[in-house]
Simulated scan of single mutants.
Amino acid sequence: MVGGVRGELRAGGSARSRLTSLTLTLTALVGGWSLLGSEIAEAARAQAGLSPTAHGLLGLDAVAGHLALLALWQTRRRQLRPSHVAPALLLTAVSSFAVAPALIWLAVLREPARRIRTVAGAAVALGMTAHELVVRSWIFGAATTLGPTLGVALASLVATGAAVAVGSFVASRRAQLEAAVARAHLAERSRIAREMHDSLAHRLSIVALHAGAMATRPDLPRETHAESSRVVHRTVHQALEELRSTLGSLRASGGAESLEAPGLSDLPMLIAEARLHGQVSVSDQGGFLTPTSPVGPVVGGQLYRIIQETLTNARKHAPRAPVEITVRDAGDGELFLEVTNPLSSSLERSGGTSGQGYGLIGMSERAKSLGGTLSAGPHTGRFVVLATLPTTERRVERP
């Protein structure tokens, strides 16, 4: 199903691209033949019969114009190169037909930098002026007067200047949009990675705790060993279900936006599960974790993930150590969260740091996304996480 949708999107984009190419080509073709036809009509009026030289030059004009049309078709979606400047100058110098494809070419090429596009535009303007001064005098059999030459030169500068300006603006906007899309993709990938880390790390930390106990304590009673085995089996199954659900949501047409985020209503189950695997105490001094909580759904989801990650880290680095969770009113529409647990001996030796700290980075990003703050680190023999969060979502201005 998803493959079909993607195929339809690709097909739609390809169809629009072909339609755009056809439109540009037809526009250049009509414009080129109009310019060449005007020159032929003017030459016919000026002379009783066109000379062999005029016939040859007009034929060369048509050939060069169609070559410019082919070049437009081949290079319209590419970036400008210095090697494009000389052909643009040559084609517009020998062909009035080539002017229309050249101007469209300047306006549609994918080149955000103005310098090389301006150089190419100057080459086209110079070629148009050279055509007026040299080629037209050969076609008409007489030198071109100063007035029409200056008029053509001015018109050439205006036309190429407009094409360069339009092309530079469109290319710059395209580059900005592509950069914005790239940033959005990176942010979404980071969000998905953070969600999967928080969810799976929580489950796997439980597995590691019980598996480690079974591996290091062969003297455990049979009932305790059997219960730990059941916990490992159940938790692995839950982790696989969550992973399957996450990947299924990503493959669905709704994408990552369809991921079901946990909230405050899921906190009682999280706390109860933590109490099964260690001692956890919760002090809710403002009713923030109750069904009548003033905390909004977005903040509630981030608060859940922060508490979940602190429990995961405590279970990973200080197994079965008591964890104390305190939530209280900080005033001005904010809440204060404090989670502490004793440092393990290994963490004390390392200064309270272990591993890459992706979980701590994720918690900090969650708090920052709400306009809050979060700090974490060792303090007087304990690992302390302190966070201040708004009770309702705020608009955060990104740099």
Score class of each variant (00 low, 15 high):
60 L>K: 04
376 A>P: 00
211 A>H: 08
328 R>E: 14
58 L>P: 09
305 R>K: 07
265 S>Y: 05
109 L>I: 15
363 M>E: 06
150 L>Q: 06
344 S>V: 06
395 R>E: 14
44 A>N: 07
11 A>G: 08
227 E>L: 12
319 P>Q: 10
344 S>I: 05
200 L>D: 02
41 A>Y: 06
55 H>R: 08
313 N>R: 10
121 G>E: 04
137 S>I: 07
107 A>D: 04
309 E>Y: 00
182 A>M: 05
367 A>N: 04
260 E>K: 12
125 A>V: 05
368 K>E: 12
125 A>C: 10
105 W>H: 13
301 G>Y: 14
252 A>M: 06
144 T>H: 01
205 S>C: 01
71 A>D: 13
126 L>F: 13
155 A>N: 04
150 L>Y: 09
372 G>W: 04
178 E>H: 09
210 H>K: 03
261 A>I: 09
375 S>P: 00
124 V>K: 08
146 L>A: 15
251 R>H: 12
145 T>V: 02
340 T>V: 10
319 P>L: 02
276 L>N: 08
55 H>L: 13
183 R>I: 06
168 S>E: 02
15 A>P: 00
211 A>K: 00
384 V>W: 00
145 T>A: 15
182 A>R: 11
363 M>V: 04
195 E>K: 02
122 A>H: 01
195 E>R: 13
4 G>A: 10
184 A>K: 11
375 S>M: 01
373 T>K: 07
50 L>Y: 06
33 W>Q: 13
153 A>V: 04
90 L>T: 15
59 G>I: 11
10 R>Y: 02
268 P>W: 10
129 T>R: 03
295 V>D: 08
270 L>D: 06
329 D>A: 06
125 A>S: 13
27 T>K: 02
301 G>V: 09
44 A>S: 11
257 E>R: 14
46 A>T: 07
244 R>M: 05
213 A>Y: 01
187 A>Y: 03
188 E>R: 13
211 A>D: 11
121 G>Y: 02
160 T>R: 05
344 S>T: 07
115 R>I: 04
244 R>Q: 11
277 H>V: 15
311 L>E: 07
348 E>Y: 00
39 E>A: 13
390 P>T: 05
355 G>Y: 03
294 P>I: 02
93 A>K: 03
323 V>Q: 04
121 G>W: 01
128 M>R: 08
320 R>C: 00
281 S>W: 02
244 R>V: 10
348 E>G: 11
105 W>A: 05
93 A>S: 15
285 Q>Y: 01
358 Y>H: 11
262 P>Y: 09
92 T>C: 15
28 A>Y: 02
39 E>K: 03
389 L>Y: 05
99 V>D: 01
56 G>H: 01
123 A>L: 05
225 H>R: 14
367 A>H: 01
207 V>F: 01
237 H>N: 07
360 L>K: 09
199 S>Q: 14
382 R>C: 03
20 T>C: 06
46 A>S: 14
93 A>C: 07
159 A>L: 12
366 R>K: 07
206 I>N: 01
278 G>R: 10
391 T>P: 07
294 P>F: 01
313 N>T: 08
85 V>Q: 06
144 T>S: 13
201 A>Q: 03
286 G>L: 03
39 E>R: 11
124 V>F: 09
229 S>M: 11
141 G>C: 05
253 S>H: 13
176 Q>Y: 06
58 L>E: 04
168 S>I: 00
237 H>S: 11
33 W>A: 14
261 A>N: 03
355 G>W: 04
176 Q>S: 12
15 A>S: 10
40 I>D: 00
43 A>H: 09
